[in-house]
Amino acid sequence: MSAGMSAMDGGAATATPRVGVVTFPGSLDDRDAALAVRAAGAEPVALWHGDDDLAGVDAVVLPGGFSYGDYLRAGAIARFSPMVATIVAAAADGLPVLGICNGFQVLCEAGLLPGALTRNVGLHFVCRDQRLRVETATTAWTRDYQRGDEIVIPIKHGEGRYVASPDVLAELAAEDRVVLRYVGGNPNGSAVDIASVCDARRTVVGLMPHPEHAVDGLTGAGVDGLPMFTSVLSGLLSNV
């Protein structure tokens, strides 16, 4: 798997893209997400859940964790924060948004992505390196992969079982909107092994695995997560 560091060499003449990382009370992986954004060659910008100003960022990451303690349902309260309201509006205008784990749950609760994430089958919290297959490279966050790539990225969640109505699942399949699937065993009981989906514009992606924990060979399973962050930069630079 090539790590796709091209974003660091290319586009030197243009301004460095700025990628916001939202911190909610209870976010855990906002710092790793910011490190991943920097490793990909962009400037991370810290955004606070209580603000409603995107500070002019070019893309946004909703990180993992347990926003507002995940009381009620995972992501349910974060969905009503001022920052998420701003992001929902900006996403309608094409702002690329990546929701990782809890961020995926927030995007589903906010209605930016279809379906919902429920308690894992077997009720166990799963924490392990997970094999995944890239099912589409035509999204804002996966264009530096190739369809069919098998990658290893850590998962760590208790509520990652993706569910959606049969109609929605058929629509996702027909529109090629399943972004990642679990391979080598479904860790949580997700419908048709879904680990990640995107919206109809293909700019909003949610996934349960943690690509921000797989950007540095020194720590973790490898660097298979890095192309997710370079992908959005490639898109931003090519749009300039």
Partner: peptide, 8 residues
Amino acid sequence: TLLANPVI
């Protein structure tokens, strides 16, 4: 909107 998620 808040108390229940009508999707599930």
